[in-house]
Design a protein around this nucleic acid. Structure first.
Lengths: 239, 239
DNA sequence: CGCGTTGTGTACGATGCCGAACATACGGGT
DNA sequence: ACCCGTATGTTCGGCATCGTACACAACGCG
């Protein structure tokens, strides 16, 4: 099934005009993204960018005392390595594969060349970056005001939106790391979701049974982010 | 003292090459920024951008239930209206003047024209936007993990960095709004800072007595953000 | 000078999450 | 079939912050 892998599975690449995509195509390389792989370390020079197709990547912030928190999640709607074209080259966050799958890799040099032409790619990347900005802002708000229960729902929905199917491969320990809470807290929240028949899980496999129920239970943050992504990247809805 | 107002008080404008600045100059208009003025409403079309000189602006997020949270603060190191050149035109956050002062205003049209030339201004604005991204991410982390005490210190320091002098005009009620906590919480935290002789305040006037002491008391978040701003916008350090 | 508005201080139980310690259960490998 | 590592479940006291209610204090204005 070689047809199973296609750069157009990534919405940013799919939204490019033919001519623009043709310039990038020779540089695109399909790579596998195993669970837990670190794509960028905090503060390290970024040489490559990644366009996820079937994988999901978390942008994590690690603190001096070892605590962590997810600040954004990137799937096939986006790109990993925003700081490359923004000019900073590095960021103080770490990029970790949260859900195994594939992505297309491109060297920073090629991306910057294309970005600096000022055409469709620049336009797309900037709009995507604004969407990312919104996601981060909303994460800040959500961390401040909402309960773990709600945040877990939001997190599940964000992941679900970036996957095919309704099953997530993800232990509670990992989710706790992403949300920046204790594992026991996730156990409790997940337990209550299970009791409400919204999800079902066992040893690292979470099946979402009632997506609408999750949406009802989460805070407004999920809807705000989703709406803003849809608004900023409308062409990407098609695929 | 007309010389008291100068576009170069804003670091972004000051960092522009002569020729680039000359193109913008005719469009720049000095405006006063009274405390509490709303520059952008959440979701509204943004027609103008602002380069603060002596004012400070908060990017606030308002929630359905009336609660709020500051996601970033902008002073003379930056610009209000990032979404204009990022392509989204609007953002889901509100921009409010947190400390009265002045700013230079520019129409979105002129800014976009200059941005799309792809020269120094584009480069500067993108780097600034990345710094803003870092600030938002750090706010998310700080909201998750740190105490109100530490967050208050961070907030005071961020404000102090964007002002001349050591006095802030700011009631505890307003600070509580920014941090997204109860006013009583701020009273307590501020009281303990005052007891430690780090600050002194009375009815909306806060004097910072011991800046180093505040830095020692705050979390790592302040240092991370400051370091990243300095790294991304080095030329701006001069003024 | 008095009075009302605004800003600040204090107290109370309630709550949501933490930190730690421990119990249970599933499932792959030998 | 067994064992052991890994994943999940449960409990406990502790703590920061919340929500609410109310008291006091400073200032501005008539």
């Amino acid at each position: 099934m070689s047809a199973a892998h296609d750069p157009f599975q990534n919405h940013l690449l799919a939204a490019l005009p033919h001519a623009d995509f043709a310039r990038l195509k020779p540089g695109l390389k399909l790579v596998t993204m195993p669970l837990g792989e670190v794509l960028y370390e905090s503060g390290s020079q970024q040489r490559r960018v990644y366009f996820p197709t079937t994988s999901i990547v978390s942008l994590l912030y690690l603190m001096a005392d070892g605590a962590s928190a997810e600040i954004a999640v990137v799937g096939n709607e986006g790109i990993i390595g925003v700081s490359l074209f923004m000019g900073g080259e590095t960021t103080p966050s770490r990029a970790v594969v949260q859900s195994a799958g594939h992505a297309y890799e491109l060297t920073g040099r090629r991306l910057k060349l294309e970005f600096n032409r000022g055409g469709a790619m620049q336009h797309l990347l900037l709009r995507y970056t604004q969407a990312l900005l919104t996601q981060m802002a909303q994460t800040a708000v959500c961390n401040r005001h909402h309960t773990l229960d709600q945040q877990l729902c939001r997190w599940l929905l964000l992941s679900l939106d970036r996957l095919v199917g309704t099953e997530l491969v993800m232990t509670q320990e990992l989710i706790a790391n992403m949300l920046g809470v204790r594992r026991e807290g996730v156990t409790e929240a997940a337990g209550s979701l299970q009791k409400a028949r919204l999800i079902k899980y066992s040893r690292g496999r979470i099946s979402v049974l009632d997506r609408v129920g999750l949406e009802a239970r989460t805070c407004e943050c999920y809807a705000v982010v989703k709406k803003e992504f849809d608004r900023l990247l409308p062409a990407l809805m098609a695929s």
